[in-house]
């Protein structure tokens, strides 16, 4: 059985991939890295010659004067999983991700219509659909590892970075705008 989710032995929820939109330069290397990670050969030079050609699961879009990569959100209450008549797509309780079992898929493309983000695509041949599996055999998903600017981050790193950025900003503003105040670290 082709199982595209996580190895069952791996316990615990897996961190999702988040995007710092302002960092994306639109280089699309995440797309290439994703396709390579989902190829037979796992090398760029050989992957581009494979048939069927490997597909990406992440999409760099340019909208509203901005550009950003987007990928499956692995929703907690996933419309795609609810729409799937065969439970090929399902909520994996161990990983917390939306997993896919190709053997159960009948290729109805109901999930394609159900996903509000357009993150599920028709597969080239079998499997019938492709979506992000969050690179089950890697700690860092291929897209995150390939991002040269740190636009793609795992959830923990993303939140910590956002918090630290915000606190640094507030601290600087407090020091510069209200110079009479003692440094924040020393305030009562």
């Amino acid at each position: 059985m082709e199982y595209q989710g996580l190895p069952r032995s791996e316990a615990g929820p897996r961190e999702r991939v988040l995007v710092r939109i302002e960092r994306c330069v639109g280089c699309r290397n995440c797309e290439l890295a994703c396709a390579v990670a989902h190829s037979q050969s796992r090398t760029l030079a050989a992957a581009i010659r494979e048939e069927p050609r490997p597909q990406r699961r992440i999409y760099v879009e340019a909208v509203a004067e901005s550009r950003a990569p987007f990928l499956c959100r692995h929703c907690d209450d996933a419309p795609c999983a609810r729409a799937c008549p065969t439970r090929a797509l399902f909520q994996d309780s161990e990983s917390g991700l939306v997993a896919f079992e190709a053997a159960r898929c009948i290729g109805c493309h109901g999930c394609l219509m159900a996903c509000p983000f357009g993150m599920i695509q028709a597969g080239r041949g079998s499997p019938f659909i492709v979506k992000c599996d969050r690179c089950p055999d890697r700690d860092q998903p291929a897209c995150v590892a390939a991002c040269p600017t740190g636009a793609l981050l795992l959830e923990g790193a993303y939140l910590s970075m956002r918090r630290r950025d915000a606190i640094a900003r507030l601290t600087r503003a407090a020091r510069q705008g209200r110079a009479e105040l003692p440094p924040v670290e020393a305030s009562p």
């Binding site: 280089c27 290397n29 290439l32 760029l44």
Partner: peptide
């Protein structure tokens, strides 16, 4: 690293 895949090709 990683270097640009498009440029590499």
């Amino acid at each position: 690293l990683p270097q640009c895949g498009f440029c590499e090709l």
